[in-house]
Write a protein that binds this DNA or RNA. Structure first.
Lengths: 135, 135
DNA sequence: TGATGATAGTTTAGTATTAAACTAATTAAA
DNA sequence: TTTAATTAGTTTAATACTAAACTATCATCA
């Protein structure tokens, strides 16, 4: 059996993601967002606390601080003090933030989806399942 | 048929790559490299001119200028003027650069490979084939 | 030729990112 | 309790990144 070239899988995948990000950045910018801010918005429902967001998104805490600050200033989310733990900030999407997030994710889906479309539906499911196992 | 969630595939994949990079960064740093410098080294044989590297690696030209400058200073590559076109710099890996590149790629393969190992060999081939189609 | 436009690579200058140190709140142990 | 250790989030200070402008060379075409 042929040995898989890990480096090749890696670089194919890396370039795929990078080029999709480059494609999609201008559209995202029109929404008043940066890509990473969109990632933050997209995880706020599931992980409403900054420290969790940093963990889930693999980004340092100060970056989250800054993105949250900007997202808040833009009216896309607000924060409440968690009364059970006064250190924690609970983040909440505003309706505007939710709408903008949906638009941003739609752009990303469209850009990535147009590549995914090269695969048959069954292959797309297969890819999703394989990535799921890797994560 | 269930509709595939493009955003989910995306974020699974994005997080996979990010976390592998975070895992591998300290080891790469011990070689005297940054991750992106390693990516540059790895493509120099196939694309010996900075402008091409920028295209292939999806990074801006000034970034390539900077990485090349550091890699040259570290003795990992040298440059020659292309006598056919005096604007162009032909980049050449030094033996030391080649050795360091191999070590860096080995680290990356090991880190990514340890995730890939969750898949059976046939599934690894399948993943490689799917990513190939997407690139 | 020589004028115009394109391309290779660099520099500059401003923004983005992040490691390290910090403040404040919580928890656990003595 | 009070002390020490931990955790949440922020600030600071330094580095990394990159858009825009630049220099030099090349290519095209009148």
């Amino acid at each position: 059996m042929p040995k898989i070239d890990v480096g090749r899988i890696w670089s194919l995948n890396y370039r795929l993601l990078t080029s999709v990000i480059i494609d999609v950045a201008p559209g995202i910018a029109e929404l008043g967002l940066e890509i990473k801010e969109l990632f933050v918005l997209a995880e706020v429902d599931a992980h409403p606390h900054p420290a969790e967001l940093a963990g889930v998104l693999c980004m340092p805490k100060p970056s989250v601080t800054m993105y949250v600050k900007r997202l808040e200033a833009a009216g896309f989310l607000r924060r409440e003090i968690d009364s059970a733990d006064l250190r924690r900030h609970r983040l909440i999407l505003t309706p505007e933030g939710r709408k903008t997030m949906a638009r941003g994710l739609a752009l990303l889906s469209k850009a990535f989806g147009s590549r995914l479309a090269r695969l048959k539906p069954a292959q797309q499911s297969e890819l999703a399942a394989l990535l799921e196992k890797l994560s």
